[in-house]
Structures are given as C-alpha cells and as structure tokens.
C-alpha cells in the first residue's frame, strides 16, 4: 500500500493567467513531488492548454493529487495516463557538446546511433537535438559527458494515450 509509484498525469486547463501557478502552488503547498512539468496551448483558439506532469507517491497520494487538481476551478479534466492504460511518452532535448579531435568525431557517431540531429555546429562544438523516452535521453547525455563539456536543455515529458480515443 505504501509503495511509491510514478504516474504521468495530463490536465486540460483553461488558458488563463495564473493557472500554472495554481497547479505548481498546489504541488508545493501540499508537499507533492514534481519530476517534470510541461505546458502549452493545444486547441486551435488557444483557449485550452495541456499540462503534462510526471509525479510520484503512494497510491493514496496519487489519488489525492488527481482530486486536488480536479478541484481547481480552471481545470477541465485530469487524466492519469499511467493508470488509464498504454500510452506514449516522449521527451525532447538539446545537448551541446564541446569537444575536439577523436572525441568530436565520436560524438557525431553516437549521435547517429541515437538518431539525434545536429542543430548547430562550430569548430569545437555541436548542438544535438534528440527526441525519445526519458532513459534514451539520459544515456545519450551520459555518453556525451565522457567526451567533453556538456550543456543540456530538456523539455520534460509529454504523453498521450495509445489508441483512437480522443480527449
């Protein structure tokens, strides 16, 4: 009962000022954990945004998080993708690697294996762009760190349920 579970939650919210602050304030105020959080408008008129949150807690805490999110006035719906069934999770990263000589060539080879793209280049650096599951991005970054100075920008997880059902 007390096992900690990791859940990916999607919340559809009214795109109004303060809505993100409400969500983040709820998590910090009630001591819930945020592993990652991303937000962007998702309707043609930009009136609704989708917040993707990766969080962890006991089953009772996860239930509370969903109920507390639902209680916020501008939140239209809350979906526990982890509980609801199979879903796709992706993360985007930009990774800058500063290296020369063999290390520089090696970074390009590894990037190729990971299907990363070169977004920018100088004589002594590359910026790679990469999409994938969290662990793929983590192992890519780890390999790059062995080759030179690394700077990382990650988007956090976005997720959507598999199948034809639309929210």
């Amino acid at each position: 009962m007390d096992t900690i579970e990791r859940h990916t939650i999607a919340a559809l919210v009214e795109n109004e000022p303060g809505v993100l602050a409400r969500v983040i304030g709820l998590f910090s105020g009630r001591g819930y954990n945020i592993e990652s959080l991303t937000v962007a408008p998702v309707t043609p008129d930009e009136s609704m945004s989708r917040i993707s949150i990766v969080t962890s807690g006991t089953p009772m805490i996860i239930e509370q998080i969903k109920a507390q999110l639902n209680r916020l006035v501008p939140i239209a719906s809350v979906h526990d993708l982890t509980a609801d069934g199979p879903h796709v999770e992706r993360e985007f990263a930009l990774v800058k690697v500063v290296a020369s000589g063999a290390n520089r060539r090696e970074s390009l080879r590894i990037a190729d294996i990971f299907h990363a793209h070169v977004a920018d280049t100088t004589i002594e650096s590359f910026v790679f762009s990469l999409t994938g599951q969290r662990d793929k991005i983590e192992s890519f970054v780890e390999l790059m760190r062995a080759l030179g100075d690394v700077e990382v920008a990650r988007s956090g997880v976005v997720a959507i349920a598999r199948g034809s059902k639309v929210l």
């Binding site: 009772m60 109920a67 507390q68």
Partner: peptide, 8 residues
C-alpha cells in the same frame, strides 16, 4: 461534495 476529501 468534494472529491479531494475522500480517502485523504
């Protein structure tokens, strides 16, 4: 009436 009161 408040779902967050349930199982808290």
């Amino acid at each position: 009436i408040d779902p967050s009161s349930i199982n808290k």
